Simulated scan of single mutants.
Amino acid sequence: MLIRTEVPADILTIDALLRHSFDTEAEADLVMTLRENGHMTLSLVACNEAGEVVGHIFFSPVTVGGQDLGWQGLAPLVVKAEYRGQGIGQTLMREGAEILAELGYPVVVVLGDHSYYRKAGYVTAAEHGLRCSWPVPEEAFMVQELLPPALSGHQGLVEYSAPFSVLPA
């Protein structure tokens, strides 16, 4: 499995993967809007031996208490149905975290399945005094510190960029 940075030729393939993998087209529309409006920090794809894109992860900026601290939001993460359960999502998260840390981005937040993201090193954000701007279960909003002590001294509301407001609640 090859993990690499998204290139322009991947955009339509990623869009199709997102449209096929989620119940609505909201995630695909979100990624396209974030990309077009300069809110993409990092986008990685996982390719099989034939070069087919079978997974995707996307990171974009978030604010904490109204401040831009270089923190990133992971959304979305997707793996083609027939490739799930092979560790591709975990590998995408690990590679993404390594690249973001190398680039100086200190923290990543994610909204999702606690048991799944915990395997990648995420912890409940509330443990650090952070809360999500949407009404979600506390255990679903998680954080990972890439460059300690970036979480120290920062608490409050974490907000994603405006294009996220189009997602269904």
Rank of each mutant, 00 (worst) to 15 (best):
L92M: 14
A120T: 08
D29I: 14
V54F: 00
R94E: 15
G51D: 03
G55W: 04
L92I: 12
G96P: 03
T63F: 12
V62I: 02
V109N: 09
E49F: 03
L92Q: 14
L44I: 13
L18V: 07
A101I: 05
S43I: 05
V110T: 14
V54C: 07
A50R: 01
D113G: 13
I11H: 13
A75T: 04
L44F: 14
L103E: 15
I57D: 10
L103W: 15
V78H: 06
G87I: 05
S21Q: 07
R94H: 13
H39I: 08
L18A: 11
F59K: 05
G73W: 00
E102Y: 08
A50V: 04
D15M: 10
Q90K: 15
S21F: 06
R94P: 07
P8E: 14
S60G: 02
Y105T: 08
E95K: 02
P8W: 12
G38N: 03
T63D: 10
F59P: 02
D68E: 10
A28H: 12
Y116M: 04
L30E: 13
G89L: 06
F22G: 09
K80I: 02
L92A: 14
L18Q: 14
V53Y: 00
L18R: 12
A75V: 05
T13K: 06
G112I: 00
G85H: 11
D23G: 15
G89A: 06
A28E: 12
A101E: 02
G112C: 01
G87P: 00
T63R: 11
N48V: 07
H20F: 08
T63Y: 09
L100M: 05
G87Y: 03
D68C: 05
A9F: 00
S115W: 06
G96N: 08
T5S: 04
L69S: 07
V7P: 02
R19M: 01
E25H: 15
V62M: 01
K119N: 08
G38V: 07
T63P: 06
H56D: 01
L69E: 07
E49M: 10
